[in-house]
Amino acid sequence: MQNTELVQEKKNFDFVDTIRCIAMIGIVFEHSVYSGTYIYDSFSLKHIVYISLIQLSKFGTISFFVLAGFLLGSKFVSYSSWQYFKRRLSTVFVPWLIWSSIFITVVLIQQYIVLKDKFDLAQLLPEKMKMAYLYTNYWFIINFLFCIGLLLIFKKFLYKWWLGAVFLLFSLTYSVNVYFEWFIPSHTTAIFGFVFYLWLGAILNKNWVYIEQKIKHVSYPVIIILFILSFVCSVLDSMNLINHQSSDPYNTLRISNILYSLITIILLLKIKNFGFIKYLKPRETTFGVYLIHYILITNLLPEIFRPFKLPLIQDMSLIGMLAYVCCRFIIVYGTTLLLIWGISKSRVKWIIGRT
């Protein structure tokens, strides 16, 4: 019986790592596509395709919290609260601090080259740190560790439905605020906005045998239809927010995107096995991709494409835009994997960490 449980646990880790890898591919693709919010004058076909490309990969963040919660639920059995949190600090926080510091340093070097004598480190450093930790992908780990800490505090009540209801209320408050903007709506500053999805992942882990059977009994046509409908609703939702000059029309916590993300997770859990993903070695590379890719997007890509003097993305043809964003993604993801491969062979392989 014990061996069966161990096999089942290993199997769970395998498919979770696979789906997290797919979610990270989506996040890199989203960052490779995004070139601004209000860059089109009207909802032309190019604009709608641009919105759709961003939305297609928008399931990544919520997926990461749900899947991290799934793994968290299994780890709670093996570690005390402090042991688990300490382990997260060494494998997640330290590598994140190193790479986010590299990002800030590179940005400051760029500013020094541009400003020269007008460069003021005392003024720019706090400004760039705020930008990095609140408005780039590096926001995630701050929020992630906060959410883990919150669950660890309430570890005794982790599987209580009332706790999930409280966390859901927090999340929905941010979701509704996307449309009314009572306070800054950016999902990157939604410090209480994602803890529900971490909790949901823990519940998924606890009831996995039952939930897995339910997912198996749902037909592919039903899930695919729901996926398409939720995707279309999310695109229309973003278009409506853009039309109303929202400050964050692609917000991850939009109600439409929450539904889209959860349906996408169900679809991925039903498929479960993606043979090609094993070649990407998801357990060893996924967190490293998160840490490194944004540095390449903001610093490498501009230098690669500068000599070609390409038009702005909004001025490209539809085919040109599609080719351009695909090239950006391939360059960033491929280069990131090469860097991770090189680092993993060195003595400092710990700097790419793992979630």
Results as ranks from 00 to 15, higher is better:
67 L>Q: 12
58 K>F: 08
50 Y>D: 09
66 V>R: 00
58 K>Q: 08
29 F>Y: 08
42 S>F: 00
35 S>E: 10
15 F>K: 01
59 F>G: 00
37 T>Q: 13
38 Y>N: 15
22 I>F: 15
49 V>P: 08
40 Y>F: 07
75 K>M: 12
45 L>M: 05
67 L>H: 11
39 I>W: 10
74 S>D: 08
52 S>F: 02
27 I>S: 10
22 I>Q: 09
22 I>L: 09
49 V>Q: 05
48 I>F: 01
66 V>W: 00
11 K>W: 13
22 I>A: 02
72 L>T: 05
57 S>I: 04
50 Y>F: 01
25 I>G: 02
68 A>T: 13
25 I>M: 07
23 A>G: 02
12 N>M: 13
36 G>S: 11
67 L>A: 07
83 Q>R: 01
39 I>S: 07
66 V>Q: 00
41 D>E: 14
36 G>H: 04
52 S>R: 11
85 F>N: 04
72 L>D: 00
28 V>Q: 04
66 V>C: 08
38 Y>L: 03
75 K>I: 10
40 Y>W: 15
55 Q>P: 14
55 Q>I: 09
46 K>E: 14
78 S>V: 06
85 F>I: 06
40 Y>P: 04
73 G>V: 02
60 G>V: 14
87 R>D: 11
39 I>G: 03
32 S>Q: 02
87 R>S: 07
29 F>E: 09
65 F>T: 03
68 A>I: 11
7 V>H: 10
45 L>F: 03
50 Y>P: 06
43 F>R: 01
12 N>H: 02
45 L>P: 01
69 G>I: 05
38 Y>P: 12
22 I>G: 02
55 Q>K: 07
79 Y>F: 02
43 F>H: 01
40 Y>I: 14
12 N>I: 01
59 F>Y: 07
69 G>V: 06
48 I>K: 09
46 K>L: 10
52 S>D: 07
38 Y>K: 15
61 T>S: 15
55 Q>F: 15
83 Q>C: 09
9 E>M: 15
53 L>M: 14
14 D>L: 08
73 G>W: 06
53 L>D: 07
50 Y>W: 05
74 S>K: 11
63 S>I: 03
84 Y>H: 12
48 I>T: 02
29 F>T: 10
36 G>E: 00
82 W>V: 04
45 L>H: 05
69 G>N: 15
29 F>S: 03
71 L>E: 03
63 S>A: 03
40 Y>L: 10
11 K>N: 06
48 I>S: 02
29 F>M: 14
85 F>E: 15
23 A>Y: 03
18 T>A: 07
70 F>G: 05
77 V>M: 10
9 E>P: 13
40 Y>M: 09
39 I>V: 13
9 E>K: 12
82 W>T: 08
39 I>Y: 05
49 V>F: 04
70 F>I: 03
56 L>G: 03
74 S>M: 08
76 F>V: 05
22 I>C: 06
45 L>N: 06
68 A>C: 01
54 I>F: 04
57 S>E: 12
71 L>A: 05
52 S>T: 11
